[in-house]
């Protein structure tokens, strides 16, 4: 485990991409910032611009329209940048799999580092997922 990874995992700046989700996962992500869960004590921050991001949280099933946009967002992020799929929709398309507007699941197109299943996942589950991400990064 290098010093770089240690520093990176102590200040993960999170950018939130909603690819047409039903807003439940987004609300649960915002819950992580509230006094009860407070992810700022681990140095995580929700940033407004993808240029500052270290982690991209994706919610919702990736449809044809939002896929193009998400690819552009991912290319704009400075590397090293990790992708976390939040919610069952972005993990496995959930019940939207036979829909006409679905091309492929997120992980068939993008490298996804951590999956957080749940509909919607609890804030505790999201924090546990981020901890898994930190373990994965520092083990490399």
């Amino acid at each position: 485990m290098g010093l770089k990874e240690k520093i990176l995992t102590k200040s993960l700046w999170v950018y939130h991409v909603s690819s047409g989700s039903c807003n439940n996962c987004d609300i649960e992500i915002l819950d992580c910032l509230t006094p009860r869960f407070d992810i700022e004590r681990f140095g995580m921050q929700l940033v407004g611009s993808v240029r500052h991001a270290d982690v991209i949280l994706v919610t919702g099933a990736m449809n044809k329209k939002s896929l193009k946009r998400f690819k552009r967002v991912y290319e704009q992020a400075p590397k090293p940048c990790f992708v976390v799929a939040v919610g069952t929709c972005s993990c496995s398309q959930h019940m939207f799999r036979p829909s006409y507007s679905m091309e492929a699941a997120l992980d068939e197109i993008m490298p996804v580092d951590v999956y957080i299943p749940g509909c919607p996942p609890k804030p505790e589950a999201i924090i546990a997922g981020i901890v898994k991400l930190i373990e994965k990064v520092t083990r490399k």
């Binding site: 200040s11 006094p35 700022e40 004590r41 140095g43």
Partner: peptide
Amino acid sequence: RIGPPWYQ
């Protein structure tokens, strides 16, 4: 909230 550690 608790807030970030001192070296943040």
